[in-house]
Nucleic acid binder design. Sequence first.
DNA 1: TTGAAAGCGCTAACAC
DNA 2: GTGTTAGCGCTTTCAA
Lengths: 340, 340
Amino acid sequence: MITIKKIAQLANVSTGTVDRVIHNRGQVTQENIDKVNKIIEKYDYKINIHASNLALNKKFKIAVCIPKNNQLEYWKLPIIGIQRGAEEYKNSGISIDYFYYDYNSLSFMKTCGKLLKAEFDGLIIAPIFHNESLFFLNEFKKKNIPIILIDSNIENIPNRTYIGQDAYQAGVLSGKLISIGLTNKKVNLLIVKINKEIDDTSIYLQRIKGFYSYFENKIEYKNYKFNEVNIEQFSKGKITKQMFEGIDAIFVPNSRAYIIAEFVMKNNIKGVNIVGYDLLEKNIEYLNNGVINFLINQNPEHQGYLGVCNLYKKLVLKEEINIENYMPLEIIVKENYGIK
Amino acid sequence: MITIKKIAQLANVSTGTVDRVIHNRGQVTQENIDKVNKIIEKYDYKINIHASNLALNKKFKIAVCIPKNNQLEYWKLPIIGIQRGAEEYKNSGISIDYFYYDYNSLSFMKTCGKLLKAEFDGLIIAPIFHNESLFFLNEFKKKNIPIILIDSNIENIPNRTYIGQDAYQAGVLSGKLISIGLTNKKVNLLIVKINKEIDDTSIYLQRIKGFYSYFENKIEYKNYKFNEVNIEQFSKGKITKQMFEGIDAIFVPNSRAYIIAEFVMKNNIKGVNIVGYDLLEKNIEYLNNGVINFLINQNPEHQGYLGVCNLYKKLVLKEEINIENYMPLEIIVKENYGIK
DNA sequence: TTGAAAGCGCTAACAC
DNA sequence: GTGTTAGCGCTTTCAA
């Protein structure tokens, strides 16, 4: 392994000059630039990361901006992953600051405002609210730091990294899963949209789009009928038994399938397939007792962990990172849940 | 962040003494040991990995011992993952030496013999052959280096790391998958064992065990009948049409489901569910045209990648690594194949 | 049993 | 434009 010192000797220049060439700091004649680059190439010089980081003696601060997790079970999971990553890389100069927001756009914007004033070297953010995110991400860009989006994707942000599900494809898959085992001549599907105040997050809409697309232009599904109902999350009373009359299968495009499963179980409704998302405790409960057939997991814990790993790679190892990291679409049934 | 120098000042000793305490090198009075440890604790001293590695100036060699991949499509995949890891950590002093073996126990032992004489700091090995592996792993242990098993597990080796599938549970899952959509009163299942010369690898046997266990003691499956056939891999002629008479579903406990799928398709046999393992090209082909219903993926690429990551963590970052890393049991259907 | 000091390879400030 | 050099924090050798 050749070092800067050796390169300097071979090129008849000083280590300072070699360093300037390597980092494009300018102030070197073209002649010397060429000389040094030739040697670098010839001997396949690779920077010694340890020496570099020691000399830089820089600590890296990562800001994490995601929903508060004390109310939302789902959002505990990315945190767990992030903490695992933090633990792993703490001796390499990585530290983490958390910026939580409540699950509404106002709080999101406030937190982003704080973030604008803060100092950090990398950002992991769950950009739940599309337009607001678009605005702030463009602001953050000016800080010229690596930005990692988890959970929700925002395109059109140059040079950002996305870690999460391909929401559209996740919808397609749910279409497949829901149609497994449906052998009736006529099939009635129910899509249940269980919303918070605003839940037009792009993930949600794309899943529904993907779901429908699965059935498009396939003759074997020409007798499928699709019904949609909207339910407010906190008014379970609005769920009625008649919604389920004649229904063969139910698709819940967010993590709240357990609300439907609960109703189905209590009212002893038989023979409906339920497909939903995310491994919340209650979802798992109904998966285990057979009310929910399939859950699609987007591995939020791993998303968080990968977020930290990617920033470690970028900041410490100085490597390029992928622009897009889609999580595998994990199909979860009772028998493969919890295998680590 | 406190440094060794500061600790030395605070304890009124030299940096050498602090270093001796930190690394338990002995040659220090109990009094000084206590003094230094107290300060370390008080200020939560963490070693600076970069400085440490720079001073050690050590390069780490990883030996990789897996089947040759020019004939075996499957074994290309761990290599891809390993190469990805190698690329990622090459500037941190990690390099990789490959030791390939042919898929038979003699070649495996020969290669292990070479390995015994070689010098390296960490080992990634696919211990396909159980007894042979048991012997050699115990020999490798004497080198006192971290050992990572991928693909196949060997228990009873103290302090080794396993990265791979929980084969038993993978069998259980295939039981579940095969019974999806089977609504007949009487069900005939066929287990097709397609063997190489010796294919009593533990993975294979455990999958079959897990498969049967899924149906045990469940009344809803009391009308299931199980049939087994053995086929030599290279004598496809032995597959006969009558094997499939009255059969509702077929379980192939290794990666060769495509052989059955091919026969089923050519002979226009309808209405059998096929469940198999691994995303070989041919398996995917039959998954895509609907002959194979489910494939269970054990993510061999990721196994390789994780192997390198784990050794990086252990050797470079000096962190403890998990003893067991089970891959999630990925259920693959057409709609979620290839999402990265 | 201890301390002093050189050196790992790179960075960056400073002097020329 | 270029060279010199101190210093990042740790390891290890050597002398005491």
